[in-house]
Design a protein around this nucleic acid. Structure first.
Lengths: 334, 334
DNA sequence: AGATGTGATTGTTACGTTTTAATCGATGAC
DNA sequence: GTCATCGATTAAAACGTAACAATCACATCT
């Protein structure tokens, strides 16, 4: 339970606490010989800086908060990996918050971030209410939106064009000559779901079809389990669509499982396209056509922007970065 | 940038800072009317407790550290979900550290945990060196091992019996009458890999076979990409095994992909069994026989033990919990 | 020699909270 | 009427660090 402080180190090295602090934070300010002495004292005593004391005094911490919608989704895991890698390189710790699509949990996580006085927050919002984020900004906490376009010009955001992605998906289905296309989606509050539908409708219109003919199956979650339930829901109807566009790959994987179990063949009876191109899309029962996104990059770039905003507040220019998705064709639409 | 402190709240409510602190930490100690006054002052001013100041003074924080080997592996994601859920219920924040199997990164993460003065650490160690953990315990930070048996009696650990699991897998293959069984594994430093091999050898011996006949393909990582490389490695040899036991499902999924691409049929030419029973095991090209573990429970129970050790240090009894795995048979071994 | 400058180091204060002992006001016992 | 008791509240002292102004030693310049 030894709690060795900067004072103990100072005593041991025969310097003042201030010098030890300098060695820790501005090594170039202190003479080589004293620095060595301090450093070996640190090593001998096993001193570890007290992050809270440092944060309290300095007014800001070396942590960032990351709030995602579903940590069980490989999409967010990849994003998290990108965030973690860069943050860790820059000496920042990442506090993880999983909202599970629940607004309450999201708010609770943001509160924790505020209490911890994180330097900044990376968030994929679970709905469109920007108020809670202002609460953070008012406290001087930088916020970068991840996989979500900026709500205002004075903020950073990194996203992938979901309208284009949705259009790509349906355009691909239309090229296959399909007649009855359905969109399998998650909660309406999630922006990605809306945008992808908008893209889908746009592609229908561009193909000379009525956007209103797009059938929709909406689920409360975007997991494989929900996808399987969506399959049951779909099979209970009289006329099965001949092509399905799922709002993400987890829904698609579950849908695939549900269809196959019911004896519906993919792609012979129904074509299927997912979204995200998670690692497993290419390894699923019937390999999955999907829309690929630069996931890891998304997390990394977002973190880059966030840390720039934190470390260079005056030179920092807010940026809205929009990546473009790619279509990856596989068996499920052949 | 308003930074409203406990003092401002006190002024507004017409009480002393100490009373505000009591409202925050021991509400039962303060009279109902004053409590109400303080609470509305808190609300009106938008006060959020400064976690660092609190930690500094109280001597401990409301955060726990979670160090995993590969956040890209659904196994660990499920564990993390269990941890996050319980921690969040109890008002704790989770700091995530991903070691990516690198000892250096793991050490860096543990240092960050120490600096943040986390209340406790949950860790799936990436190798067998217990020294670094002592560094944490010496600082009064509780440590619970996750998916790893205890190294000493005075610590908590939650694990699943990997020897049994390995034996189950190979026993299942032997029952299928296979002759040439190979074990596809990750880094030797990872205990899980060793234990599962030990179980495999034990099953061979129990089946009247020579344990030494177990061929081994060892990869530096336990990812799908590594599994695919393992397939190439295997295909370069003259005599293909007729059954493969992969140390985890990611390796198995990659292996499956590699084999199918080379025209090797599963299970007709080669049987395949994985480990972990991740969600995608049942959805892969050929659905995967696997060894199921109570993953989410693992994380939740570990956190339960950790928080008990933190909050009730005197009544806490160290526990070593060992779950048992299950065999789930699917197409890949039929 | 004295003045000036430079680089290295130190003393002190403040950050926002928790905690302990001390204070206060009121109630009831004698 | 005095005194003890009790619950509610307060004042003040930490916790470990960062930051800034102040000091110091010493070399360089005039």
């Amino acid at each position: 339970m030894s709690t060795v402080s900067i004072k103990d180190v100072a005593a041991r090295a025969g310097v003042s606490p201030g010098t030890v602090s300098n060695v820790l934070n501005r090594p170039e300010k202190v003479a080589g010989s004293t620095r060595d002495r301090v450093e070996s004292a640190i090593r001998e005593l096993g001193f570890v800086r007290h992050g809270s004391a440092s944060t309290l005094r300095a007014g800001h911490s070396r942590t960032v908060g990351l709030s995602v919608i579903d940590i069980g989704n490989p999409f967010f895991t990849d994003v998290a990996a990108g965030v973690e890698d860069l943050a860790s390189e820059r000496g920042y710790a990442v506090i993880l918050g999983n909202s599970s699509g629940s607004r309450v949990k999201e708010e609770r996580n943001l509160l924790v971030f505020a209490e911890q006085r994180v330097r900044g927050v990376l968030i994929t919002p679970s709905d469109e209410d920007p108020v809670r984020l202002d609460m953070l900004r008012d406290r001087g906490i930088a916020v970068v939106l991840v996989d979500h376009p900026a709500e205002r010009p004075d903020q950073c955001a990194v996203a992938v064009n979901d309208v284009t992605g949705g259009a790509m998906a349906v355009q691909h289905l239309l090229a296959g000559g399909f007649e009855r296309i359905a969109y399998v989606t998650g909660p309406a509050a999630i922006r990605q779901c809306q945008d992808r539908r908008r893209g889908a409708e746009r592609a229908l219109a561009a193909g000379g079809r009525d956007p209103l003919e797009l059938r929709e199956v909406s689920m409360p979650a975007m997991t494989a389990a929900a996808g399987q339930q969506a399959a049951e829901k779909l099979l209970a109807q009289d006329l099965l669509p001949d092509a399905l566009f799922c709002a993400n790959d987890l829904l698609a994987v579950g849908m695939l499982r549900g269809l196959l179990q019911a004896g519906v063949r993919v792609p012979e009876d129904v074509s299927l396209i997912g979204y995200d191109d998670i690692d497993f899309a290419s390894a699923s029962t019937v390999s999955l056509t999907s829309i690929r996104q630069p996931t890891y990059q998304l997390g990394r770039v977002a973190t880059e922007l966030l840390l720039d905003e934190c470390d260079n507040p005056d030179t920092h220019a807010h940026q809205q970065i929009m990546f473009q998705p790619d279509l990856v064709v596989r068996e499920s639409t052949r």
